[in-house]
C-alpha cells in the first residue's frame, strides 16, 4: 500500500519514449498535465478532459488509453509512449506518419497525436485489423477538420502495406509501420 496526502508532492517516475523521466506532482494531477507541464512533452494534447475526444491518447505499457482519465501517480513505474516517440531514430517520419502526410490526412493536427497512438497500438495487433474494423477502432477519436476520409485511407494503406510485407516475408520480424521506442 502506498498512501499520499492530498497536497503532498509525490515523486513519479516513468519511462517516456525509452527515457527514464521523473517529476513531482500532487496525487490529483492528471497524467496529461504531468506529461505536458512537468515533463515538457507537449505533443500530447488535451481537448476535453472527459475522455470523449481522444486527443490525449497515449500508450501505457503498450495499451492506448486516455491520459486525461489517468492520474500521474497511477503511471508511476509504467512505460509510456507518446507521439514524440513515433518518428525514426534519425528524426524522419515513420511509415504511418508518412502515409498521413502524403494523403493530407490532417489539418490543424491537434487531434493527431492521440490518433497516432491508437494507430500505433493497432499496427502491433496480430492479426492486423481488417479494413472494415478500422473505423470502429478509431471511433473514439474526434477530428473536427478533416471529415476522417483521408485519415481512414492513410491508416488502411499503412495496415495493407504491413500485411503485404509480412505475407511476402513471413519469417522476418514483424514490421509494424511505427518505430519501436
Amino acid at each position: 500500500m502506498k498512501r499520499w496526502k492530498q497536497s503532498e508532492l509525490v515523486p513519479v517516475q516513468v519511462e517516456l519514449n525509452g527515457v527514464q523521466r521523473r517529476g513531482l506532482c500532487e496525487p490529483r494531477v492528471l497524467l496529461s498535465d504531468f506529461l505536458r507541464d512537468t515533463l515538457g512533452a507537449t505533443g500530447t494534447h488535451v481537448g476535453c478532459e472527459t475522455g470523449e475526444c481522444g486527443a490525449c491518447t497515449i500508450r501505457v505499457d503498450g495499451v492506448a488509453q486516455r491520459s486525461c482519465l489517468t492520474l500521474a501517480v497511477q503511471a508511476d513505474g509504467r512505460c509510456i509512449e507518446t507521439v514524440e516517440g513515433l518518428a525514426q531514430a534519425d528524426g524522419s517520419l515513420c511509415e504511418l506518419q508518412h502515409a498521413l502526410r502524403e494523403r493530407f490526412a490532417l489539418q490543424c493536427g491537434f487531434c493527431i497525436p492521440g490518433i497516432l497512438m491508437t494507430c500505433a497500438e493497432m499496427l502491433k495487433r496480430r492479426p492486423l485489423p481488417e479494413d472494415e474494423q478500422i473505423p470502429g477502432l478509431l471511433a473514439g477519436h474526434l477530428c473536427r477538420c478533416t471529415g476522417y476520409t483521408d485519415l481512414l485511407a492513410a491508416v488502411r494503406h499503412t495496415v495493407a502495406e504491413v500485411r503485404r510485407r509480412e505475407a511476402a516475408h513471413p519469417a522476418s520480424a514483424p514490421s509494424v509501420g511505427v518505430h519501436d521506442a
Binding site: 505536458r36 512533452a41 507537449t42 505533443g43 500530447t44 494534447h45 488535451v46 507518446t82 507521439v83 514524440e84 513515433l86 518518428a87 525514426q88 534519425d90 528524426g91 524522419s92 517520419l93 515513420c94 511509415e95 506518419q97 508518412h98 498521413l100 502526410r101 502524403e102 493530407f104 490532417l106 493536427g109 491537434f110 493527431i112 497525436p113 497516432l116
Partner: peptide, 28 residues
C-alpha cells in the same frame, strides 16, 4: 528508409512537426 519516407511535392510544410508532436499550439 528515410528517403522513402520523405515528402512528395505538394505535401504540407506544416505536417512533419504536427505529426511528431512538435506543434507550437498556444498552450505548448
Amino acid at each position: 528508409r528515410a528517403s522513402r519516407f520523405g515528402p512528395s511535392a505538394g505535401t504540407r510544410v506544416e505536417d512533419a512537426a504536427l505529426l511528431c508532436g512538435r506543434g507550437q499550439f498556444a498552450d505548448d
